[in-house]
């Protein structure tokens, strides 16, 4: 687990403003194009292992939180978006691992995103949201899903957000590495 301590000064209002909807807006910021240009379509992602330059700000997978007592650290974790073994759908899990935060529960949200031919990432499928304990074990993961409409090779990733219950934490989210899987919505 990688951890980094960062000084955080924020309010719960700032945290709530950084929810996934805003992330999507940032992710799909697209250069202006001719009205005659074909609309972007889902596509395989280049094999860079990273988000395309300029698509969003760099975000860390670790988190920190402030409380009235002290600064603390936790880890935001996820897995690789994959085709489920039991249903023809893309799937990705998210969870959190506590370092030293005075929190028992966190709300974990996992939103899958699909890569588009214009270089943008767009939300796809249904976000998973669960209030879970630390560790990622039984019943302590959230799952984002997106049913496949075809088996065309397409880039996918997930965005995992962790909000500690009772503590204000930073707005950082985990963007998992892009994976090209035979699933397209």
């Amino acid at each position: 687990m990688r951890q980094s301590l960062r000084k955080v000064s924020m309010t719960a209002g700032i945290v709530s403003a950084a929810l996934l909807g805003m992330s999507q807006t940032a992710a799909i910021a697209v250069p202006s194009a001719s009205v005659l240009a074909p609309p972007p379509t889902p596509a395989p992602a280049p094999d860079t292992g990273r988000a395309p330059a300029g698509s969003e700000a760099s975000l860390e997978n670790t988190g920190s939180a402030t409380s009235t007592r002290a600064l603390c650290v936790f880890n935001t974790a996820g897995d690789y978006v994959h085709v489920s073994s039991s249903a023809f759908e893309a799937s990705g899990h998210g969870w959190w691992v506590n370092g030293n935060c005075n929190a028992t529960l966190a709300v974990v949200t996992v939103q899958l995103q699909q890569y588009y031919s214009d270089g943008s990432w767009r939300n796809a499928g249904t976000a998973g949201r669960a209030t879970v304990r630390s560790g990622g074990g039984a019943g302590n993961r959230a799952t984002g899903r997106g049913g496949c409409n075809s088996n065309s090779l397409t880039g996918w990733r997930s965005v995992v957000d962790v909000d500690l219950v009772g503590l204000a934490d930073d707005p950082g989210k985990l963007y998992t590495p892009s994976r090209n899987i035979y699933c397209r919505r």
Partner: peptide
């Protein structure tokens, strides 16, 4: 499953 991960053989599904 992080942007700059290195090493390892597999990613969890």
């Amino acid at each position: 499953a992080t942007e700059n991960a290195s090493g390892g053989l597999w990613g969890m599904n």
